[in-house]
């Protein structure tokens, strides 16, 4: 007899998922990135993109930019969970503030000869991508922009001999004179 059962109340939720970019200011100390990443894996949150670097070396502060997806309730949880970690100074939801600029850098290697090569160069020019390495049969382009622009460029390069892509992930900053 098949009798599925559980000690837990299992409910399906159908709230739509949203994508948010979070800026997290942390004390730059050993293990801090592991704490942040561990929180995401441990609680089953998504990381679409993550960038981290020290931004204020005198104060030992690093800035982590995380792009994540989830229902509004989950996004709220993520922010609170991050904020209560001991070495986390501030968490700002760049998407919620609606006044953020997001940029990403990608290096895109394309292999091709003849017409493909010419087409790749033409498209690169249209996207304001720079050639930072070239051989007679390949290019490495450097492109900066928001995520969708980069995705679009990569999609266009695919049939023209895309070899590989290296992306930095998203960095974000608020518009206007105020800091975070």
């Amino acid at each position: 007899m098949n009798q599925p059962a559980s000690a837990y109340f299992i409910e399906e939720r159908h709230d739509p998922s949203e994508t948010h970019t979070l800026a997290v200011l942390v004390q730059n100390e050993p293990g801090v990135l592991a704490r942040v990443i561990g929180l995401f894996s441990g609680r089953g949150y998504n990381i679409e993109s993550l960038t981290v670097s020290e931004t204020e070396s005198q104060k030992h502060l690093s800035r982590i930019t995380i792009v994540t997806t989830g229902t509004p309730m989950v996004i709220e949880q993520i922010k609170h969970q991050l904020d209560r970690m001991v070495p986390v100074y501030r968490v700002v939801d760049m998407t919620q503030s609606g006044r953020a600029i997001e940029r990403e850098l990608a290096m895109v290697k394309v292999h091709g000869v003849g017409e493909h090569r010419v087409e790749a160069l033409r498209l690169a020019d249209a996207f304001r991508a720079r050639v930072i390495d070239a051989t007679t049969e390949s290019f490495v382009f450097e492109i900066t922009g928001n995520t969708s622009k980069i995705n679009q460029f990569i999609d266009l390069m695919r049939p023209l001999g895309l070899v590989e892509v290296s992306r930095t992930g998203v960095a974000a900053i608020g518009r206007g004179p105020e800091g975070m």
Binding site: M73, E76, Q77, H80, Q81, D83, R84
Partner: peptide, 11 residues
Amino acid sequence: IDPSSINKNIR
């Protein structure tokens, strides 16, 4: 006392 307890399971 823990903001992450708010709206976690119940609005």
